[in-house]
Design a protein around this nucleic acid. Structure first.
Lengths: 65, 65
DNA sequence: ACATATTGCAATATATATGTGTCATAAAGT
DNA sequence: ACTTTATGACACATATATATTGCAATATGT
């Protein structure tokens, strides 16, 4: 798994810290941090919750190519 | 979680049984079956593997709206 | 009606996502 | 310099995705 730069960009574009995004999404700060670092294989539901919070789609945040 | 009709349609469109898709993707038949039934919250990597096998994107198979 | 393929379901076992707590470090504010 | 905020890293605990096996039910073909 590679770093998820697109997620980090989308999060900072909304002026949210990892902790703030985590609270909105309903997970721990560490989970968000690890996803951005590419050290996790998140669940689909979590991906969708992140997308909804950041007003993005799955392809925009989690699709490579 | 709701049934994933789009996945079932894409799979049958390629004339694959759940078992055949499972083998191509590298998971068990039950895992594919439960995802189609909406009883599972699959991992992102598995979603991507399914998309690649069926020549679809995440939005096309796993995004609602 | 019979045979076969496909799919749903249930029980148990294992791998891994996620939570919780803590510490270290770096950046930003005062 | 000091304080606060944000992030990365680590260890351990828990929840859940996934595997495995077997059986029932539903198609589909002959």
């Amino acid at each position: 798994m590679a770093k998820n730069i697109k997620l980090k960009v989308a999060r900072t574009a909304m002026d949210l810290s990892q902790e703030e995004l985590a609270k909105k999404v309903g997970v721990s700060r560490q989970t968000i941090g690890l996803i951005e670092l590419g050290k996790y294989n998140p669940s689909l539901n979590l991906c969708i919750a992140i997308c909804n919070t950041l007003s993005k789609t799955l392809d925009e945040l989690f699709w490579e190519n």
